[in-house]
Every structure is written in C-alpha cells, then in structure tokens.
C-alpha cells in the first residue's frame, strides 16, 4: 500500500501549491520555517498577501540574489529577505501581539501529528536531544485560520492524522485545515471532514492510512495539483 501511495502522492511543492490556492486577497499571513515557506512561491496572480515574520517584519518578499544579503534583514528561518513597498519593522512584543491578538488571517505550519480534535504536535518528537519551540506555540493561537501542510503518512507509512497525538503537543484544538499529500481535510467539531482527495485513491484506501474517522459533508472534491 505505501509503495502504491508513493507513486500517486503529491510532492511537498504540490502540497504548497494547493495550499497557496486558498490564500485570500488582502490576507496577513505567517508561513512556518521550511516547507510552509514554499507556499509564497505559488501565490496566485492578482492576490495581494502581506507576509509576517516573527522577528519583526510585515511585507517582505523573496530572497535577495547571492551576495546581495543584508544580515539585518532576515526572516524567522534566519534567511535573508527583501522588502516590498509598504513594509514595516517592529519589535518582538508587537510582533507577537499581531500573532496572539488575532490580527493574522492565516498561519501555516508543518506537523509531526495532527489529531481530529485539532491538536497539533510539531515541535518535539519526545525522544530527547535539544528541545526547541521557537514561535510555534504562539502561532497556533490567534491566527483566524491555522493550517497544516504535511505528508499524509510518516516515512514508515504510519498515519500522521490521528484520533489523539502521541507526541508532545504544540497546541490544543488549534488546527482548522490540513493539506496533505493525499487530501484536503478540515477539522470541524472534533472531526476530520474530507473536502478533497486524489482521484486515483478510493475513500477506503485513504481511510486506511488515516488514524481517525474521515467524515464527509456533501461531495468530496478532486484534489488537483499542478504538475511541478
């Protein structure tokens, strides 16, 4: 089963592309370090989105050319960025006021596990090493929508969407939508609600690699991803 999934599943870039289609015109958005940052690459034409980074910038753009970096101008991933017209700088307390105060429209994060009640585990596998949390525990609270981009299963083929998380939690009841390599799933009233799935995958096959019940409300759409 897992080898079969590997041949049809979306790449990270395709998941990011799908998530980008839901970016709303005029939205203030925070994209987590790494995979979620790719979403900005696929921002649809004609939509104006203002990106927020925890370290005190609103309205940043893509990375500068190599050699053009200014190391006073970085994002939360410590990568060099550029500014768009209308950008603003602010200190860390104002930055997290934007986060917790409900001023962001959308935050997108990665995940180790997501539970049907909206719990998210994405900061620690609980297996020792050096713990690091950064801004994740703040970002999951306050944004109007908190979305996750993730592979549907782990590298070993185990479900990442579960009844309850087994790894240390980042936040409780915080996730509203999950974009996976196989499906788009909303979290409503403590349940996974399937919105879209890959056409090549049956509902039963998708349910088999999901650790909690998938409910449906009306038609399930086809998860279409651009060939990238």
């Amino acid at each position: 089963m897992s080898t079969q999934l590997d041949t049809i599943k979306l790449t990270n870039a395709q998941i990011a592309w799908r998530a980008a289609q839901d970016l709303e015109d005029g939205a203030y958005v925070n994209l987590g370090i790494g995979f979620p940052e790719m979403i900005a690459t696929f921002q649809p034409e004609g939509r104006d989105v203002v990106y927020h980074t925890e370290n005190g910038v609103l309205g940043f753009g893509e990375a500068p050319a190599a050699g053009e970096e200014d190391w006073d101008l970085i994002n939360a991933g410590k990568k060099a960025i550029t500014l768009k017209p209308g950008a603003a700088f602010f200190h860390h307390a104002d930055s997290f006021s934007m986060v917790r105060g409900g001023h962001l429209d959308l935050a997108v994060l990665g995940a180790y596990q997501v539970a049907e009640n909206g719990d998210l585990a994405n900061w620690s596998t609980g297996k020792g090493g050096v713990p690091a949390v950064g801004g994740a525990m703040d970002l999951v609270h306050g944004a109007k929508r908190v979305a996750v981009v993730t592979d549907h299963v782990t590298k070993k083929g185990e479900p990442k969407l579960l009844k309850r998380c087994t790894m240390p939690l980042t936040g409780v009841g915080c996730v509203t939508r999950v974009y996976t390599s196989l499906a788009v799933i909303d979290i409503e009233d403590g349940h996974f609600v399937l919105r879209e799935k890959l056409e090549a995958l049956s509902f039963d096959d998708l349910q088999a690699v999901t650790g909690a019940e998938l409910k449906t409300k009306g038609d399930v759409g086809v998860l279409v991803a651009k060939v990238l």
Partner: peptide
Amino acid sequence: LELVPQGTLAERI
C-alpha cells in the same frame, strides 16, 4: 536550559 515560547519570552521581558 529554560525553554520559553518565543512570544512568551518577548512578553515576559
């Protein structure tokens, strides 16, 4: 090590 979420660290300060 005392690990503090980033926004909490900023607000505590």
